[in-house]
Design a protein around this nucleic acid. Structure first.
Lengths: 143, 143
DNA sequence: ACCTGACATTAGAATTATTCTAAGTATTGA
DNA sequence: TCAATACTTAGAATAATTCTAATGTCAGGT
């Protein structure tokens, strides 16, 4: 498993002439281990457990690299710190206003995700959807 | 027209125990005059033409107030400066990667915006959609 | 008219998230 | 083994925004 991940990471990096380093591995591992959409700061703190020497600049660099390799997605909600998500399936994010948790909501089977219609002439590159509201736990508690 | 706007603004403010001030009026006017999704900085520059004494802190305060009154919407794209939009109809934003223009794309008639489906238990409060790509002008030019 | 208190504005300092810089370290390929 | 390139690091710099404390303004009650 570990090895599979390392290989996948290495492959992706190699195709861009980039190297598999301990830090990149570490940062990616941190993201895979707890898929709770951490900020760069949080990734930094967790990474230090395995790589005590790592610096915050490196964490930013590594996250950037992972995003460029298509292994990680940035999640921006309002103007709070950018969060990072290793789920590359088509999905959108649900932010619970009560508990602050961010949920991945997978696109429904029939690709029915964006019926986003743009007028003639517009070419859609990427489409980002985010939803705020109350998660099941908090919706129930509020009754 | 001017009066209508002032009245609407005043009404909204009054229901929250807030006052209609020259600065709030000025900032709102700036947003209505050119609906090009300016940043706070840009609103500041334009506002100074009518209200040379206005400060950037006041611009931020006024924009905040307008957002809270439901007269203005914040537009966040990536982590660039927040932009402000006085179009309160249901719509989403299209950002042209080539020319940087932000377009308002109005929701299609049958409320068919994306039937964004959330799993049972989730309560949707607000849904934000943004699309990146190439606008008609830039799409045409790139041929 | 004139207080009083709540609401507002202002300049400038502070904060936060992020990026830049410059120096040193590591790895790869010739 | 050497050079070139990629990478990491600490700390400085930047950008956008928020905070602070002082001052200003307005509406309602006396």
């Amino acid at each position: 498993m570990e090895n599979g991940v390392a290989n996948q990471l290495n492959e992706r990096l190699a195709t861009s002439g980039l190297r598999l380093t301990a830090q990149r591995q570490q940062v990616y591992d941190v993201l895979l281990q707890r898929r709770d959409h951490p900020t760069a700061e949080e990734v930094f703190i967790r990474s230090k457990q395995g790589s005590p020497e790592i610096s915050i600049a490196t964490v930013y660099n590594c996250l950037d690299t992972l995003v460029k390799c298509g292994l990680v997605r940035q999640v921006n909600l309002d103007r709070s710190a950018t969060r990072y998500c290793p789920n590359m399936h088509e999905h959108f994010h649900f932010y619970c206003d009560t508990c602050g948790t961010i949920y991945d909501i997978d696109a429904p089977p029939e690709g029915s995700l964006p019926a986003v219609q743009v007028p003639k002439g517009f070419t859609v590159g990427h489409c980002e959807i985010s939803v705020r509201g109350s998660c099941p736990a908090c919706s129930a508690g509020a009754v």
